[in-house]
Amino acid sequence: MESKLAPATLGYFTTVQQERTGWTGGLLVLNGGGRPLEFQCTLPLRPTKAHEILFGNTLRQHLICDVIGPTLLKKCRTPISMLLCEQTESLRMSDADCTLGFVATPENDGKATIAREHAGHCVMRIRDEKVLVAMEQVEAAEQVAEQLGDFPDLIEPFERIREAIREAQSQIARAA
């Protein structure tokens, strides 16, 4: 009897940093056709001055891959085949139980990052986009990519997350 693979799901994770509100993370899980299955976002997180001093230039990485990312992944109820991120710090998330990939987007300096590649990572193509993936996860990433059928756009979901975060923040502001 042939075993059938579960349909691939793509998770999209990003953070938005705003002077007024602080750091907010968003996680959008899509099916292979690009339709939403689940969305999670954090409340804004504002590091204290003590955090800024103690963490120094590692504060950004700490917030993204030790605080915000793991919080969203723990809350997520939908299994994720591959988590796509637009901040390179996300590649260091150790709590992720899925393949991690960094996507070059207009919002980040992804083209330069991908050109440099990180140690232990390589570039692969998914839906005409370059994705940086850990070498030990390339085979799993290729399997996910094969299951994406008619997935429309690999970059556009990041904008959906940013827009959903803006909307949630404006609703909170109106309620206050």
Rank of each mutant, 00 (worst) to 15 (best):
Met1Glu: 09
Leu5Asn: 13
Pro7Glu: 11
Gly11Asn: 07
Gly11Lys: 06
Val16Ala: 03
Arg20Met: 09
Gly25Trp: 01
Gly26Asp: 06
Gly26Tyr: 03
Val29Leu: 01
Asn31Gln: 07
Asn31Met: 04
Gly33Ser: 15
Arg35Val: 01
Leu37Lys: 11
Phe39Ala: 08
Thr42Ala: 07
Pro44Ala: 12
Leu45Thr: 12
Leu45Glu: 11
Leu45Ser: 04
Arg46Asp: 00
Lys49His: 07
His51Ser: 13
Leu54Met: 13
Phe55Leu: 15
Gly56Leu: 02
Asn57Ser: 13
Asn57Trp: 01
Thr58Lys: 10
Thr58Val: 04
Leu59Met: 10
Arg60Pro: 00
His62Asn: 10
His62Met: 12
Leu63Thr: 09
Asp66Val: 04
Val67Cys: 09
Thr71Gly: 06
Cys76Ala: 14
Arg77His: 08
Pro79His: 05
Met82Tyr: 02
Leu91Cys: 07
Asp95Glu: 14
Thr99Val: 15
Thr99Arg: 00
Thr105Val: 13
Thr105Asp: 07
Thr113Met: 14
Thr113Asn: 07
Ala115Met: 07
Arg116Phe: 08
Glu117Gln: 14
His118Phe: 07
Cys122Leu: 11
Val123Arg: 14
Ile126Cys: 13
Ile126Val: 15
Glu129Asn: 13
Lys130Gln: 15
Leu132His: 08
Val138Tyr: 00
Ala140Ser: 14
Val144Thr: 15
Leu148Lys: 10
Gly149Gln: 07
Asp153Met: 05
Leu154Arg: 06
Ile155Ser: 07
Pro157Lys: 08
Arg162Leu: 08
Ile165Leu: 08
Ala168Cys: 07
Ala168Leu: 09
Gln171Asp: 13
Ala175Arg: 14
